[in-house]
């Protein structure tokens, strides 16, 4: 998937920690420092207690495939298919699910419940958190 063209996120104050955490190998999720709720997508306020005392925290970077699909349609020229799109439920961050790709294995080997680990793919300043299966 290294050569796959991808629309890239525009970095801003809210999302920078998430998209650049891969620079030191960490997957960072915004967390309320008062009540402990993880906040994703990141916001400058806690949706549980309304505290503005929020900060990004590194999580384990492992998780479980909540559900997935194998995309076969080339939505634009240069897009290599098939590839797996999955929702990954993150360990240690209750309620946080990331949409990502499961890479590094044949598409037919991905299933709900699979254990996966983050694998960052750098494109410029952004480190995309992709996932691969934990053998």
């Amino acid at each position: 998937m290294g050569a796959t063209p991808r629309p890239m996120p525009r970095l801003d104050a809210d999302n920078r920690a998430f998209w650049t955490g891969g620079a030191d190998g960490k997957l960072r999720i915004m967390r309320c420092q008062d009540c402990g709720t993880f906040l994703h997508p990141p916001r400058p306020v806690c949706r549980h207690c309304l505290s503005e005392n929020v900060a990004p925290e590194a999580v384990a970077g492992t998780g479980t495939v909540d559900t997935f699909t194998v995309n076969h349609q080339a939505w634009y020229p240069g897009l290599e298919v098939p590839y797996v799109i999955a929702r990954v439920a993150l360990d240690g961050a209750p309620g946080v699910i990331l949409t990502s790709n499961i890479v590094g294995c044949p598409v037919e080997e991905v299933d709900i419940g699979d254990r996966v680990r983050v694998k960052f793919e750098r494109q410029g300043d952004v480190y995309l958190p992709l996932f691969e299966k934990i053998p």
């Binding site: 629309p7 699909t69 995309n71 939505w75 999955a86 949409t99």
Partner: peptide, 23 residues
């Protein structure tokens, strides 16, 4: 580049609603 809610799926080439409903 993408922002808003698009940023959470477009980088993973999950831009079509088909991929979301399919899951």
């Amino acid at each position: 580049t993408v922002d808003g809610f698009s940023q959470w799926f477009a980088p993973f080439n999950a831009t079509s609603a088909s991929s979301w409903v399919a899951q």
